[in-house]
Design a protein around this nucleic acid. Structure first.
Lengths: 169, 169
DNA sequence: AAAAATTATTTTAAGCTTAAAACAATAAAT
DNA sequence: ATTTATTGTTTTAAGCTTAAAATAATTTTT
């Protein structure tokens, strides 16, 4: 709409007239700063308090929601990380006794990953504290702030998805 | 304030009465999803289009704003990454001819990192496209959306900082 | 001025992460 | 039924990332 505010003749139109997207850029950088800041602190506390890494915690969080376990490829989609990444992560969590890896009975390619009893118990303890950390980190936001932010981030998520995947699918 | 809505007798008070912070948790996960989604796409396009990694791009973006270069430790603070991380990153950017590393004339401990002419030219090209990608990714947000989101993220950033550093300093 | 503390950077070890290639099993097409 | 394509996982190579320890120079304290 700004483009139409000032009438342009044919010559002026032909000249490269780059739109200014600094506002969107600042928005993106601020979003990134927020998540980096919070993620870094969560990572630090998880290590300090439970000697666990954030990726391990995230993986266990996914499995905690799936009592019957999850396929590695589903984990990959949910966590938005590569399959190869998960292979190593699961290796280490198997080694530490937090999860088990079994071959799917219906598909011999697929691996089903499941929390062990100990893994689940340990995760629940960590998750309890984690929830308080998050509440503390977002503590200055009012209920309305959180609501508004939630809505705007939902819209942002959809916008990004559309830009990434195209409107198709 | 919710705690005071229902009067509790001494006995009830003594029982563990955990507050529910699932709302904040969902907010955090949504924020993280947004930044992971966008960051992943930017990373993918930088590689595809310019064969460059996001950390390299970020480092050059900082240097582009500092014509006289920056100290490694300042870079570290700005980018919110460890010093050790930067040492390797700078190594690789020196090897590819994008930046130069010089000892500070005023402090023999300090390294000043600067873009080369080629590095700056290449960065400017990439930054131009990058700005369009971001605009596209946030394309479904209205001007008001962007404004509101900007404000809420500013508040979130302050809230997180307070929680991390404490009110002091 | 010498000792102690701080600041700036690098090194190290371990783990995280990705993209791309390889492998293996299932599903679809002929 | 065989070929072809797809799907699920692992491996590989390179790079990113951190925390902690080590090194070196500056600043502060005594």
């Amino acid at each position: 709409m700004d483009d139409q505010a000032i009438p342009l003749d044919a010559e002026t139109k032909a000249v490269e007239m780059p739109e200014d997207h600094r506002e969107e850029l600042r928005l993106w950088l601020r979003l990134l700063t927020c998540s980096t800041l919070i993620e870094g602190e969560v990572r630090r506390r998880l290590r300090e308090r439970f000697d666990v890494t954030l990726p391990r915690f995230d993986l266990m969080a996914q499995l905690d929601k799936a009592p019957d376990g999850m396929m590695l490829s589903d984990l990959s989609k949910r966590m938005m990380v590569s399959n190869g990444n998960l292979t190593g992560l699961v290796d280490r969590l198997v080694a530490s006794g937090h999860v088990v890896r079994t071959v799917s009975p219906t598909d011999r390619r697929a691996m089903v990953i499941r929390l062990t009893e100990e893994g689940r118990a340990e995760f629940r303890t960590m998750a309890g504290e984690h929830e308080h950390w998050i509440a503390e980190l977002f503590g200055d936001l009012t209920g309305k702030d959180r609501n508004d932010l939630m809505r705007l981030l939902a819209k942002t998520k959809l916008s990004a998805r559309r830009a990434i995947m195209g409107d198709a699918q």
